[in-house]
């Protein structure tokens, strides 16, 4: 059996007196993993200590079964990192900088240049590859960072907030790219993100961190298991409030959903049949614009995991 892709044993990270990670132990066998947690939970600290950007106060990190403290530099050839902050090689063109980063990972200059071109094409920056990264927009910089993480063909990718600051188009595109890298090329992914829909789409399991402690290690399917037979309903904005009133009058619980025009209907005693929703809508003179069984969103589950512990 191959060793786990990533193994943390009692990993502790401190900045001065502040403890960012407190004796975290976990292991990741491959696939796609999401790191969730509020700001300051220790997600970035975990990524940075695995990559050797921060020296852990104690504990062991093993990548592909090798201790990073001993063989870190060599192991990092098999790892690609997309940092949260913008990061690039200044003063040279995007493709030149990327080739340079590939050379550092041990590619021959000719191979490196070839791959730099290919990777930039892959992320959709082919037209812009001779420009300097400093002139890139946020979306282009994100794609450049992904290219930089991929250029030396690593086996494991660390992505820190990959869709942060992207417009919808850019976001969909980035998610698609990441998904392809994983599904078609068998890369392992570890993604730290706030955007739960992204996580839901890309990952199969999550580690929930809070204040430097591992709160939960769970598969996404388990986290979002359908709850209590509720219905998620969307209506025209102007009728939305009226509909909620009517639903409450009918003995249902109406919780606000994602947008202002969405409600989650819950009946404490039984599952709600779809036709009841349609009838309710007709009764208050409006149309149903969307309807689906209300699985708990990852966000709810995530909040629950955090708050349940705080109580």
């Amino acid at each position: 059996m191959p060793p786990p892709v990533l193994e943390l044993a009692e990993l502790t990270v401190r900045y001065g007196r502040f403890t960012a990670l407190d004796r975290v132990s976990a292991s990741f066998d491959g696939g796609a993993l999401a790191l969730l947690g509020p700001n300051g939970a220790g997600k970035s600290s975990m990524l940075r200590s695995i990559l050797g950007l921060v020296r852990p106060a104690s504990g062991v990190v093993r990548l592909f079964g090798e201790d990073t403290e001993k063989k870190g530099a060599l192991m990092r050839r098999r790892v690609g990192y997309m940092p949260e902050r913008d990061s690039w090689v200044p003063g040279v063109s995007a493709v030149r900088g990327l080739a340079h980063l590939a050379e550092i990972c041990g590619l021959l200059p000719s191979d490196a240049m070839l791959r730099a071109h290919d990777t930039l094409h892959f992320v959709g920056l082919g037209e812009e590859r001779y420009r300097e990264v400093s002139s890139f927009s946020t979306g282009m910089r994100q794609r450049y960072k992904l290219a930089a993480a991929l250029v030396h063909d690593p086996d494991l990718l660390f992505l820190d907030e990959p869709t942060n600051g992207l417009d919808p188009r850019g976001r969909v595109r980035m998610l698609g790219l990441i998904d392809r890298v994983r599904k078609e090329h068998g890369k392992h992914l570890i993604i730290a993100s706030h955007l739960l829909p992204d996580v839901e789409m890309l990952c199969d399991s999550v580690w929930v961190l809070d204040e430097g402690v591992m709160k939960k290690s769970e598969t996404i399917a388990n986290l979002t298991a359908a709850a209590r037979g509720g219905q998620r309903v969307r209506l025209p904005r102007d009728d939305s409030a009226r509909f909620a009133e009517a639903a409450r009058a009918d003995g249902l619980e109406a919780l606000p959903g994602e947008g202002a025009d969405e409600w989650v209907l819950i009946d404490e005693s039984a599952a709600i049949p779809p036709d009841r929703v349609f009838r309710l809508a007709r009764a208050c003179g409006t149309r149903v614009l969307g309807l689906k069984a209300a699985a708990r969103s990852l966000e709810d589950a995530f909040l629950e995991a955090l708050e349940g512990d705080a109580d």
């Binding site: 990092r76 902050r85 200044p90 003063g91």
Partner: peptide
């Protein structure tokens, strides 16, 4: 100065030291 301030602004160290370089 140009090298250093550009590196600081571009946050280049993060790109470098997450790779196999000592």
């Amino acid at each position: 100065y140009d090298l250093i301030s550009a590196d600081l602004r571009a946050n280049a160290f993060e790109s470098y030291f997450s790779r196999s370089i000592t």
